[in-house]
């Protein structure tokens, strides 16, 4: 197992579906934030076989953790303070998300009118399925 140093203060986004770390990195705009970030891809996982992990050292006050659930409903989030985990969270899936997920259906009106809000509603909480408000196509996380 690759060894990455522990965090003193920050968050660990764990159980990310393999290949999904960069999407979350990009959504959180970590490239432009003044925080240290480690991305671990293809880490071994008892639960998932393989997974991605993002470790963020630093404070991120404006982070909406529930939105991350819409991107990947399996992820878990550990909050670290003074080197210890003080809270573990499973994001609650929001009923609606705007401009977080992008509809990939080429027949959807959002594919030709770029100014529209990409709006998704949760239609199956157990399986974390979101559907585009316009064309009702489910969001494809691949």
């Amino acid at each position: 197992m690759l060894n990455i140093g522990g965090l003193n203060q920050g968050i660990v986004i764990d159980h990310i579906k393999v290949g999904g770390a960069m999407k979350i990195y990009s959504y959180l705009d970590l490239e432009n934030k003044d925080v240290s970030v480690a991305i671990i891809k293809n880490a071994r996982s008892n639960k998932m076989g393989k997974k991605d992990i993002i470790k963020i050292e630093g404070t991120m006050d404006d982070l909406d953790l529930d939105i991350l659930g819409a991107l990947d409903h399996q992820i878990t989030i550990n909050i670290i303070e003074n080197g210890v985990i003080i809270d573990k969270k499973n994001p609650k899936l929001p009923d609606h998300v705007n401009n977080v997920l992008k509809c990939k259906n080429p027949r959807c009106i959002t594919s030709v009118e770029p100014g529209l809000t990409h709006s998704f509603k949760l239609t199956d909480r157990a399986n974390g399925i979101y559907r585009c408000e316009y064309c009702e196509q489910s969001f494809d996380r691949r």
Binding site: N105, R107, C108, I109, T110, S111, V112, E113, L116, C132, E133, Y134, C135, E136, Q137
Partner: peptide, 10 residues
């Protein structure tokens, strides 16, 4: 009527 899905909702 519109060829793109969701246009009437818009």
């Amino acid at each position: 009527r519109h060829p793109k899905e969701g246009a009437p909702l818009v």
